[in-house]
Nucleic acid binder design. Structure first.
Lengths: 235, 235
DNA sequence: GGATAATTCAAACGTATGATTGAAACGGGC
DNA sequence: GCCCGTTTCAATCATACGTTTGAATTATCC
């Protein structure tokens, strides 16, 4: 029963074995997926012994969970804090405007991915892929997003009184799917848009996500009866 | 070099070996993913010999491609036909309204998945997952969607003159991501919405996708300068 | 109905995987 | 300076994988 209380007193020389493993696994999982990544490839990339991952994480599934344990806390905290700031800004009982809620929802992951640490970007890619994955490793982290989801669900619901429950659920689900697709492979849009879009620019990504989300969530509830479905967007 | 010219004269008793393989593979790939599905599981489910898949499809990757070869033709044809019908409806040089283009884009997969054949639903699930997958099997079918994508790209572009190229590319990419997430796991929204949403009802799915897409794509190009991001959706 | 091609089958091949072992090396506390 | 808990390491286990083989079986054509 190894319960590493104080892993190392001196970690000046690079990093812990476990951190090296997590970094390597993050990289490989994000590029190859869970199944296609072998522990041998992980330990080789990390420059550690094969048995180290079982020692530090217990199993391959434990390694996957450990990746999330390292990153999900800061991300969730930042998201909820941003929502709280928005709530304080508008006042106690007031409804937070849609754009503000969406900004609070998108800003943390976008900004954190843009900061120098490439590990977080890779983590986001893994997380985005889990939206449409199955298996133990995917099921293991359903609860991990539950709290954030509930808070933003409530805030968005309040900002969208014109929608009934069904419309609201549909749109929120689709919007999260759009976000996850973006996170799952940011480079794809750079290629498909032939360079028009720059997924490396956090301001651009954020602005686009918010504009997209506002339009999608804020669209009218029931289709107006006129048949021509021309864009009613531009004021 | 087996080149099965006429596979079978009598196929009254159930189906061909290859069809049994494709059906089983479709089921397992859609539930477990490509890597987690073994040929042994496929052949066992299909009730055929293990070597049959290599005989009929060449390899596991060939099996994956064969699944797409069977389904993608009818889907693409139906989508392009729907777009063509919409084009004829509005007249030669006219711009097809956004809602019509979106309907042509979404209707075929939604309707085809709703018809009795459960195989197509599974195929859609596989296809949706490929949006955020990597590896040979995912790369193998990039060109498979190219033609449809180009046609709808052009039609949507014409319907959205108020957007610049960058905004347009962002929104289209995000919209396709939202759709793929839905196809990749239709049951998820039924669970997360606590039964409010019924992904089995094609009319509901179609209406929601179109409403979502119209709002998302049709949203104003540049953020209005007023700071409160209240929903401008409801007229 | 016999030759010929197409298909099915059981068995095996070589390799890769996740996990485990037990001994060796390391580290801090006294 | 020795002891003990922690960590590393090479070696190995059992299993699962995709693929291949060659013989047996079945369908097709003349």
């Amino acid at each position: 029963m190894p319960t590493p209380s104080t892993p190392r007193s001196d970690r000046s020389s690079s990093s812990t074995t476990k951190e090296k493993i997590l970094d390597a696994a993050e990289e490989l999982f994000s590029e190859l997926g869970y199944d296609a990544t072998s522990l041998r490839a992980v330990t080789k990339t990390a420059g550690v012994n094969l048995a180290a991952v079982n020692y530090h994480c217990g199993s391959k599934l434990g390694l996957f969970r450990a990746i999330f344990e390292r990153r999900i806390g800061p991300l969730n905290r930042e998201r909820l804090a941003a929502l709280e700031r928005a709530r304080e800004r508008v006042g106690e009982g007031k409804v937070i405007p849609l754009g503000e809620v969406l900004r609070a929802f998108f800003e943390a992951p976008v900004r954190m991915a843009a900061r120098e640490d490439p590990g977080f970007r890779r983590f986001l890619r893994i997380a985005g892929r889990m939206q449409s994955a199955s298996g133990d490793h995917a099921n293991a982290l359903v609860p991990v997003f539950a709290e954030v989801r509930e808070h933003f669900h409530a805030a968005l619901r309040a900002a969208l009184p014109h929608l009934d429950d069904r419309d609201f659920s549909w749109r929120l689900h689709l919007l999260i799917g759009a976000m996850c697709t973006l996170f799952a492979d940011p480079q794809r849009i750079a290629i498909l848009s032939q360079g028009h879009c720059d997924p490396e620019n956090p301001d651009e990504v954020l602005a686009q996500l918010i504009a997209f989300g506002k339009g999608a969530l804020g669209a009218p509830s029931k289709e107006p009866l006129d048949e021509d479905g021309a864009a009613e967007g531009p004021a």
